[in-house]
Simulated assay, not measured.
Amino acid sequence: MFLHLGGDVIIPKKDIIAILNFRARNSAITREFLELARGEKSIHVIAEKGKEKSFVLTREQVFVSPISCSTLKKRAAMLISAED
């Protein structure tokens, strides 16, 4: 199954490691992680400036999504129940 992250971005649900609230960027450890990802050019920004709601971490990339982490979680849960 796939998860729509906003814009035209859809990723395989199995690739998702974590979905974090965008406000988590204020944490020291999150800032350090994002700096490393930025240096590796693995951040893909889907959201417009000022409309960022969540980070979606995969093995290869970090997506900045305009969709809240709670909405993404609900979408993922719906996909799980649809698979049963």
Rank of each mutant, 00 (worst) to 15 (best):
G6T: 01
K41L: 11
S27N: 14
L20M: 11
T71L: 09
S27D: 15
K49D: 05
I16K: 10
I17W: 00
F22D: 07
T58E: 00
P66W: 05
A77R: 15
L72F: 05
T30E: 10
A76L: 14
D8S: 12
T71F: 07
E52K: 09
K14S: 10
I19Q: 07
A76R: 15
M1R: 12
S65L: 01
C69V: 05
S42R: 15
E52T: 04
L5R: 10
I67A: 02
F55M: 01
I67G: 03
A18H: 08
P12T: 04
M78R: 15
L34V: 02
A47E: 03
A28P: 14
L34D: 06
A82M: 12
E48Y: 01
V62P: 06
K53D: 00
N26G: 12
C69M: 07
S65D: 02
K51V: 01
A24M: 13
G39H: 06
E32V: 00
D8F: 09
A47T: 04
A47C: 03
I16D: 05
D8C: 01
V56C: 02
H44Y: 11
H4M: 02
Q61C: 08
E60W: 08
I67Q: 05
E83C: 04
P12I: 03
R59L: 09
E35T: 11
K73I: 00
V64P: 02
F2Y: 12
V56L: 01
M1V: 07
L36S: 07
A77C: 04
A76T: 06
K41D: 13
V56I: 15
A28M: 13
F33R: 15
F55I: 01
R23L: 06
L34M: 11
F22W: 11
R31M: 05
I17F: 07
L57D: 01
K51A: 07
D15K: 10
S27T: 11
I43H: 01
K41N: 14
D84A: 08
E32D: 09
S27K: 11
D84H: 09
R59H: 14
K73M: 06
R59C: 07
A24V: 06
G6H: 08
I16P: 04
S81Q: 13
I29Q: 14
K53H: 04
I17P: 02
G6E: 04
C69N: 14
S68E: 05
K74C: 03
T30K: 15
E83M: 08
K51T: 09
